[in-house]
């Protein structure tokens, strides 16, 4: 099953996206699921690699706004399987740091990861559903990316 990694500058934004996307998982699990206690057999894992880990920052969580390539690489590694990982990103440097993260991973692992061009919220929701239906990485990403064309407001 394809697993999802949410990369955002903001920890809270990513947690919210994860919360929304988890609702969409076919046979949805408890939304408290994370990488450490997930049922890895037949449930899509959605994990967050958001913010820059920083013990000294003033936020409520030990993360400041931004993205960190090493942290993203470690998070991908945690949920990677042969089925692959789809990474959903918010803004520019989240893309830069995810690309760098893939460079740090072994090539066989990076080769089964895709960075989605999808909009973060719609893409994550679509990908969670598609992944939970057991579709492969290409299919999940194509569906997520096509979410960019969903018409939100009826004309």
């Amino acid at each position: 099953m394809v697993n999802l990694v949410i990369v955002s500058h903001s920890r809270r934004l990513a947690e919210g996206v994860k919360e929304l996307a988890t609702q969409m998982i076919f046979g949805a699990p408890d939304i408290t699921t994370d990488a450490t206690d997930a049922n890895t057999d037949n449930t899509v894992q959605i994990v967050v690699a958001a913010g820059i880990p920083d013990e000294e920052c003033d936020n409520a969580t030990p993360y400041r706004l931004g993205s960190d390539a090493l942290y993203i690489a470690q998070t991908i590694e945690q949920v990677w399987t042969q089925d692959g990982v789809l990474v959903l990103v918010d803004l520019g440097s989240a893309v830069l740091n995810t690309e760098m993260a893939l460079d740090f991973l072994p090539p066989e692992m990076a080769g089964r990861c895709q960075i989605s061009n999808a909009p973060l919220v719609e893409g994550a929701i679509t990908a969670a559903l598609e992944a939970s239906l057991g579709h492969d990485l290409d299919t999940v990403n194509q569906a997520a990316e096509s979410a960019a064309h969903i018409q939100k407001v009826s004309l």
Binding site: I52, R64, G66, D68, A69, S93, N97
Partner: peptide, 18 residues
């Protein structure tokens, strides 16, 4: 490079790191 990538973070960390 490795110190700047995680120490700076963000785009600047990735760019100076690269």
């Amino acid at each position: 490079a490795m110190t700047l990538i995680s120490g700076v973070g963000g785009a600047a960390g990735a760019l100076y790191g690269s």
